[in-house]
């Protein structure tokens, strides 16, 4: 029914005793995600979430004891790269990093290392992955999507929620929603996720949510034209953003003429993608 996460996902939460980690671990558990362990260095041996979830000092300890096959990271930015590396070295195949503000040089090194170790990273600075009705890994509100056959992939966080919410109001269901994150260096790209949706028998079409900066949407457009048989709809944020101003995300910089929303929209349209004028109109452009 999905890509990346489903009912078989055995989740480990790195930073489970922190404010954000604890709050969202609670929400994930309420959603029905199978949380099997938490990691907080120095707090190994404790139990959290009504005494149901054991806390470990190390990822390797947690993974060996509980068979965790996915980790979600909520640790502060300065420790995030270390947490990603620890998860990869602990043998976790899927790592989802929610933390925002991770230094770029840290990410370049971490990304290179984990790629060599065969783990997949989603994020950082992302809302995570949601397979409605099955598993929520991250911070996407669970009540704004219903199960279905539309795959959603996005560089944004809250803008993704806006689109999910718009789909839900029209009773359009989602197979999996993947937030790849807004940072310039991330673990998983549009292309990776588009390829997964193309291969997923339970996904019929895809909604892609882009924004200004970089050339990820243009690359996605090429991939869609060359490799996708399933229809794709899109929204690209930042039509009104002035050139050369940094709009929050490290990724959202309009770089010397390229990276403009208009160019991205044109590239997507020429690849046969139906582009919505604003997020509320996404339901009108899905097939």
């Amino acid at each position: 029914m999905s890509i990346l996460v489903d009912k078989k996902t055995r989740l480990l939460v790195q930073g489970i005793t922190g404010r954000e980690g604890f709050f969202h671990a609670t929400q994930m558990m309420e959603y029905g995600t199978q949380i099997v362990a938490g990691v907080t260095p120095g707090k190994g041996g404790e139990w959290v979430l009504d005494g149901k979830i054991p806390v470990f000092d190390t990822v390797v300890g947690a993974a060996e004891t509980t068979g965790a096959n996915c980790s979600v990271i909520f640790v502060p930015a300065r420790f995030a790269a270390d947490a990603i590396l620890e998860a990869a070295d602990g043998g976790i195949p899927l790592i989802v990093c929610i933390t925002e503000g991770v230094p770029v040089q840290d990410m370049m090194q971490a990304r290179s290392h984990i790629t060599q170790h065969g783990s997949r990273l989603i994020g950082p600075n992302c809302p995570g992955v949601l397979t409605p009705g099955a598993s929520k890994v991250g911070i996407i509100p669970g009540n704004i999507a219903i199960p279905g056959s539309i795959g959603v992939v996005s560089r944004s966080g809250t803008l993704t929620y806006e689109v999910l919410y718009a789909l839900q109001r029209k009773e359009l269901g989602v197979s999996t929603c993947v937030g790849i994150g807004g940072d310039p260096i991330n673990g998983t790209s549009f292309l990776d996720v588009l390829a997964m949706f193309e291969d997923d028998p339970h996904t019929d079409q895809v909604v892609l949510i882009g924004e200004i900066g970089g050339t990820d949407e243009e690359r996605a457009a090429e991939f869609i034209a060359d490799h996708m048989t399933k229809p794709v709809a899109a929204f690209v944020a930042g039509m009104t953003a002035p050139a050369d101003k940094r709009m929050g995300h490290a990724g959202a910089i309009v770089e010397g003429g390229s990276g403009l929303a208009a160019d991205k929209i044109a590239a997507l349209k020429s690849a046969g993608v139906r582009v919505a004028e604003h997020p509320d109109l996404i339901p009108e452009v899905v097939a």
Partner: peptide, 8 residues
């Protein structure tokens, strides 16, 4: 809240 949503 969020850069993408702010731009949208």
């Amino acid at each position: 809240n969020g850069a993408g949503l702010a731009m949208a």
